[in-house]
Amino acid sequence: MRTLLVGLLLLTAACRRPSTQLAAMMTPVNQPSDFSQYLKAGDELIAMGNDPSWSLTINPSKGVLRFKTLAGDSLVTAVPERQTDSNGTFRYTAGEESEKINALFRPESCVDKLSGQRFDYRVEVTFRGKSYAGCGASLRQLALLNDIWVLSSFHGNPIAAGGPRNELPRLEISLSEGRVTGTTGCNRLSGTIKADTQTILFGPLITTRMACAGDVGQFESKFLQEFTDPLAYQVSEGKLTLLRAGKPIMVFRKVD
């Protein structure tokens, strides 16, 4: 009886506390960073770094540049004119005398050492005689995802409307809310979404339970399967292209 009791206690502990190996297996890899809070605020450019911790946001819609450090240094000022070089480097200079700030964005891949987040710019900031180094991103491209997109091709093949409603698969993306809704062409879908400047992750997605007969049902399964892993994306000329290993998987067109 004592042996049985000890075994049950060990089993209970194992169920409550998964092993490190199991936890690692359950942790998604290559997930995009979450910029939803910045999109909700209307920020267009962001940068951050460590040693000491600092952050910079530029919000053109509100006309505000904000800089702050964990050490207490901070500045809130009007967004200055952007100065751009031929190599894609750009800078902002604002303030006067002791309150002058310079922020330089270089188009180089940059990974934040503390969070592991990937960014598109290496950023250097000088303020009050101190220098700060870190990473940054432009959210212009990311903000373009916030729209309604209708599927036009799947693995290079054009898509026709079908299903009981005679409609095309559609995605309505709201990154600021972290939500996606739409249709598979038969069933309604909804779920979570997260994206950074290069990668997008859908799901988990849930759908209604309407029966989809024939080709429509077979396509729905293939369509949903493509959203199980992170995908690269491109937005241009009213088209959203989702890619895997550099190859286009699905192309959506923007709904006006």
Results as ranks from 00 to 15, higher is better:
1 M>D: 09
4 L>D: 14
21 Q>M: 10
26 M>V: 06
29 V>P: 00
30 N>G: 08
31 Q>R: 08
31 Q>V: 13
34 D>K: 08
49 G>T: 01
51 D>R: 14
52 P>W: 05
53 S>H: 15
56 L>D: 02
57 T>E: 08
59 N>C: 04
60 P>V: 09
60 P>E: 09
62 K>D: 08
67 F>E: 02
69 T>I: 01
71 A>W: 02
72 G>R: 10
73 D>W: 10
74 S>G: 05
77 T>A: 01
77 T>S: 04
81 E>Q: 12
81 E>L: 11
86 S>V: 08
87 N>Q: 15
91 R>T: 10
93 T>S: 15
93 T>D: 14
93 T>I: 13
95 G>T: 10
95 G>N: 06
96 E>L: 12
98 S>A: 14
107 P>D: 06
115 S>W: 04
116 G>N: 09
117 Q>K: 14
119 F>Q: 05
119 F>A: 14
120 D>N: 13
122 R>I: 08
123 V>N: 13
131 S>M: 04
133 A>Q: 13
134 G>M: 03
136 G>F: 01
138 S>R: 14
139 L>K: 07
141 Q>L: 05
143 A>R: 11
144 L>T: 11
149 W>R: 12
149 W>K: 11
151 L>M: 08
154 F>I: 07
158 P>K: 13
162 G>E: 04
165 R>E: 10
167 E>N: 13
167 E>D: 12
173 I>N: 11
179 R>V: 14
195 A>G: 00
199 T>G: 01
200 I>G: 00
202 F>H: 04
208 T>Y: 02
217 G>K: 09
218 Q>I: 09
222 K>D: 10
223 F>S: 11
226 E>I: 05
228 T>Q: 15
229 D>Q: 12
230 P>F: 14
231 L>F: 07
231 L>G: 02
232 A>C: 02
233 Y>Q: 07
235 V>M: 04
237 E>R: 13
239 K>Q: 14
244 R>K: 14
246 G>V: 00
247 K>N: 12
248 P>V: 00
255 V>N: 13
256 D>N: 11
